[in-house]
């Protein structure tokens, strides 16, 4: 097998393992989903949103809910590797460590994306507008792609500390801010049926974020895990 196929296979195996763990334990997606819904309810009462204001804010609320909820999934996904020293086992495997990063990022990304897909119809009902929009889904793909790759790296970083998973949001939110701004703004413009030219700079920013954070992960994942 050539090295590239081997690399892809490693990523796939880690991804498959995470799906199996999720299927058996169901500790990631349901928790994220319920948490995201709770955030929606909390915001609704905390901000006393009037119906026409709600429509304007739906995109922002969606991203706040996703950003908060995904920290739970990210922490869970890395903490489960730490339990029973599964991470050590992974690291002992004769594979490129960046493949482990890609595998974990991929599963985190897919799980968070599933949560987003379930949230969309719910938001459509709550905020009385159709959010099952292919363009919006494309933006969610881009936004969550960079958010979860940065998140996976920082989750691995924070699990090494004494504070453990508590640290993740503090490290992740300020660094992910440009991604979240770009995601919120482009989602809002898409939902307001603006033409692509209005939000293409945000799309470029999201693509840049993907390249940057995947690159950063590739570069530093090994450094973070070395012992």
């Amino acid at each position: 097998m050539n090295p590239f196929n081997r690399y892809l296979k490693t990523i796939w195996q880690i991804f498959k393992k995470d799906i199996r763990v999720e299927w058996r334990g169901r500790q990631g997606i349901p928790v994220m989903l319920v948490f995201a819904l709770l955030i929606v309810f909390l915001f609704n009462f905390a901000l006393q949103l009037s119906p026409d204001l709600q429509a304007e804010l739906a995109a922002g609320l969606l991203w706040v809910a996703l950003a908060f909820a995904s920290t739970l999934g990210l922490n869970r996904s890395i903490a489960s590797e730490r339990e029973n020293n599964a991470l050590d086992g992974l690291l002992l495997a004769p594979v490129d460590r960046s493949a482990i990063f890609f595998g974990k990022s991929l599963s985190n990304f897919v799980f968070t994306f599933l949560v987003a897909l379930i949230l969309l119809p719910v938001f459509s009902v709550f905020y009385n507008q159709n959010m099952l929009n292919l363009r919006l889904i494309f933006i969610i793909l881009l936004g969550l792609g960079s958010y979860t790759s940065l998140g996976t790296l920082l989750a691995v970083l924070s699990i090494q500390t004494r504070a453990r998973d508590v640290l993740l949001p503090v490290l992740l939110f300020p660094l992910a801010l440009p991604i979240l701004i770009a995601a919120v703004e482009s989602s809002r413009l898409v939902l307001g049926s603006h033409p692509v030219s209005d939000y293409q700079s945000w799309l470029f920013l999201l693509i840049a974020g993907n390249i940057l954070f995947i690159g950063v992960g590739l570069l530093f994942f090994e450094t973070i895990l070395e012992e």
Binding site: L153, L177, T223
Partner: peptide
């Protein structure tokens, strides 16, 4: 060191987005 490097490269992105 890893965190300081990631931080400094996101600053231009943050400024640009704001």
């Amino acid at each position: 060191a890893v965190f300081a490097i990631i931080s400094v490269i996101t600053v231009p992105l943050t400024f640009f987005s704001i």
